[in-house]
Design a protein around this nucleic acid. Sequence first.
DNA 1: TTTTTCGCAACTTCAATTGTTACAAAAAAG
DNA 2: CTTTTTTGTAACAATTGAAGTTGCGAAAAA
Lengths: 139, 139
Amino acid sequence: MKQDGRLARMIHVIVHMGLLDGRETSETIGRMLNTHPVVVRRTMGMLKASGIVGSESGRGGGWKLLRTLDQITVLDVQRALSETSLLPPGISGDHPACPVERATNAALIQAFARAEEVLSDRFSELSLSAIAAAALAGE
Amino acid sequence: MKQDGRLARMIHVIVHMGLLDGRETSETIGRMLNTHPVVVRRTMGMLKASGIVGSESGRGGGWKLLRTLDQITVLDVQRALSETSLLPPGISGDHPACPVERATNAALIQAFARAEEVLSDRFSELSLSAIAAAALAGE
DNA sequence: TTTTTCGCAACTTCAATTGTTACAAAAAAG
DNA sequence: CTTTTTTGTAACAATTGAAGTTGCGAAAAA
């Protein structure tokens, strides 16, 4: 499948919006991401459902942050974009009753769950204001 | 993209072969995994290139383990199947010069690298004999 | 009423694994 | 030497999920 770049793209957008502190239209954001405005609406819609951004129709409308950057973590954005596991272990379901398959899947699931915990912990302590600061510092 | 189930499938196969300690044809393994023999050859070929299994053509041929289960780790199998990163961070490349995009990508890459380290460490200490033992214990 | 903008449905495109067909090569059996 | 079994490989269709695109409706301001 094509790689999922939504997390990186949405963080990029939110940090820009936080730094500019203004409204942006899907058209403007689309140019920022080199993509189609409809893709922007589709993805930003998920952030809206999680209360990270709001939108307004009509002239003068667009997207607006509902929180400041230090009130948004990478984990917030990630959760808004995906209901499923962050790291799918890629288990097999060829013979559900086979004890070897079961033990294999269990071992993989457990290993991925540990790694996911590390990733989630890091994401939860990484605020978008920290990324904004790093960008301004020119790292 | 479609989910990659090769790691789980190959571990499944190797554990079975280690427990039976015999040769298996692609046909037999294909039935074990509910898949086509050509898919088996394709994937097992990667394990062969890494020296985990060997193969012989012709009548009476097939696939054979070149190491015992306690000499094969999940990491060995994973590395045999993929040259690329275990956990691709899904960065964006829309505006390579934008400092916000760069800071975002850097933060994600670092976070995923930490998680990958945890996963690799676990995989390196998880031998296929441990999975075999768990399967026999009926967990 | 016109213009701007989000919202949404219905495609096409794209990348990666999986599945399938066909055929060559090797090795044992007869 | 021919037949049978089995790997090896090339080529292509099927599948899955994200990304891109088109078209139209709804809302809100000018």
